[in-house]
Measured scan of single mutants.
Amino acid sequence: MIINNLKLIREKKKISQSELAALLEVSRQTINGIEKNKYNPSLQLALKIAYYLNTPLEDIFQWQ
C-alpha cells in the first residue's frame, strides 16, 4: 500500500487542489482522489507532483 503526504505538503505550501490540478493538467477530482488514497498516481504524474511541489518524491509517497 502506498501512503501519501500530498495533502499535508500541498497545504503547507499554501497551494489549493485546483491550483495544483491546473499546474499538472489534471482535474481537481484527480488530486482529491490521490489525497484520499482512492487510487495511486502513475509514475509520470507522481514525478510531476514532486517537481511542482519542489519536494522529493519519497517525501510525498511512501510504501507501507
Rank of each mutant, 00 (worst) to 15 (best):
A50F: 01
L24E: 00
N4P: 02
K7W: 05
W63N: 04
Y52E: 07
N5D: 04
N54Y: 06
Q29K: 13
K14F: 10
G33V: 10
R28L: 15
L6C: 05
K12H: 12
N37G: 14
K14E: 10
L57C: 05
L8F: 14
L53W: 03
W63A: 04
L57R: 04
M1G: 05
K36A: 15
Q29T: 14
L8E: 14
I9K: 04
T55G: 02
I2A: 10
V26M: 05
E19T: 12
S18K: 14
N32F: 07
E11M: 12
G33S: 15
Y52R: 06
E35S: 01
P41A: 04
I34F: 04
L23A: 15
A50Y: 02
D59F: 10
P56H: 07
I2H: 08
F61R: 01
R28C: 09
L47I: 12
I60L: 12
E19F: 09
L53K: 00
Q62M: 10
T30E: 09
Y52D: 02
K48C: 07
Y52W: 11
G33H: 15
R10G: 01
K14H: 15
K14R: 14
Q62N: 06
L53R: 00
A46G: 09
K36C: 09
Y39F: 14
L53F: 08
R10A: 02
Q44L: 12
T30D: 07
Q17A: 09
E25Q: 15
N40W: 09
I9S: 04
I3G: 06
Q64G: 12
E19D: 13
I15L: 11
F61K: 00
I2W: 09
L57T: 04
G33R: 15
Q62F: 07
N40H: 11
V26G: 02
L6G: 01
S16T: 15
V26Y: 03
M1H: 07
L8D: 13
K14I: 05
I15M: 14
A46Y: 03
K7S: 09
Q44F: 11
D59I: 08
L43M: 14
N32W: 10
A21P: 00
L8V: 14
Y51W: 12
Q62Y: 07
I3W: 08
E19M: 12
I2G: 05
W63P: 04
Y52T: 11
E35M: 02
I60T: 02
Q62I: 10
K12T: 12
I15K: 06
L24V: 15
Y51Q: 12
N54R: 11
K48S: 08
T30R: 08
N54H: 12
E35A: 01
K14A: 11
D59Y: 10
Q29S: 15
N40E: 15
Q44P: 12
I60P: 01
S16M: 06
I9C: 06
I49P: 00
G33L: 14
N32Q: 09
I34G: 00
A22E: 14
L6P: 01
V26L: 06
E25K: 14
Q62V: 14
L23I: 14
K13W: 08
N5Q: 06
L45I: 08
V26H: 03
K48Q: 11
N5G: 04
N4M: 03
L45H: 03
I60G: 01
Q62D: 06
E35Y: 02
I2S: 09
F61A: 01
Q44A: 15
E11I: 14
I31G: 00
T55R: 05
R28G: 08
A46S: 06
T30W: 10
S27G: 08
L24D: 00
M1E: 05
Q64A: 14
S18I: 14
T30V: 15
V26T: 09
Y52G: 05
W63K: 05
S27M: 04
L24G: 03
I15W: 06
I3S: 09
M1W: 06
L24M: 08
K48D: 06
E35P: 01
A22C: 08
R28A: 14
F61N: 01
N32M: 15
S16N: 08
G33K: 15
I60H: 01
L53S: 01
R10V: 02
A21K: 02
F61Y: 03
R10M: 07
A50P: 00
I60C: 03
V26I: 13
K48F: 04
A46L: 05
W63Q: 04
I2E: 07
L24C: 09
I15V: 11
S18C: 08
N54M: 12
N4D: 02
G33M: 15
S18F: 13
R28N: 12
N40D: 10
Q29N: 14
R10D: 01
K48L: 09
E19Y: 11
K14P: 04
I31Y: 04
K48M: 09
N54G: 10
N5V: 04
N4A: 03
L53E: 00
E25N: 14
E25G: 13
N54S: 14
I31V: 12
A22R: 14
L45V: 06
A50Q: 04
Q62W: 06
P41C: 06
I15G: 01
T55K: 05
I2T: 12
S42L: 04
L20I: 05
G33T: 08
E25C: 11
K14V: 06
A50G: 05
I3C: 07
S42K: 06
A22L: 13
L47P: 01
I15Q: 05
Y51S: 09
N40A: 15
E35N: 01
L20S: 00
L43R: 10
I34L: 07
K12R: 14
L43A: 08
I15C: 05
R28H: 10
I3N: 07
K7Q: 12
L43C: 09
S18L: 12
Q64W: 08
K14D: 12
L43E: 07
N54Q: 13
P56G: 05
N54A: 14
I60Y: 01
I31A: 02
L6N: 00
K12Y: 14
S18D: 14
A21G: 07
K36F: 09
R28Y: 11
F61H: 01
Q17I: 13
K36W: 08
F61D: 01
I60K: 00
L47Y: 13
Y51M: 10
L43F: 13
N32T: 12
Q29W: 14
L23H: 13
P56N: 08
A22I: 11
K7P: 04
N4Y: 01
Y52I: 14
P41G: 02
R28E: 15
Q64L: 07
L6A: 03
L43Q: 09
L57M: 10
P56S: 08
E25I: 07
Y52K: 06
I3L: 15
F61V: 02
K14Y: 08
I9V: 13
Q29G: 13
A21Q: 02
L57E: 02
L53A: 02
I2L: 12
I3D: 05
E19R: 14
A22M: 12
R10N: 01
I31R: 01
Y39V: 14
E58P: 10
E11F: 07
K14G: 15
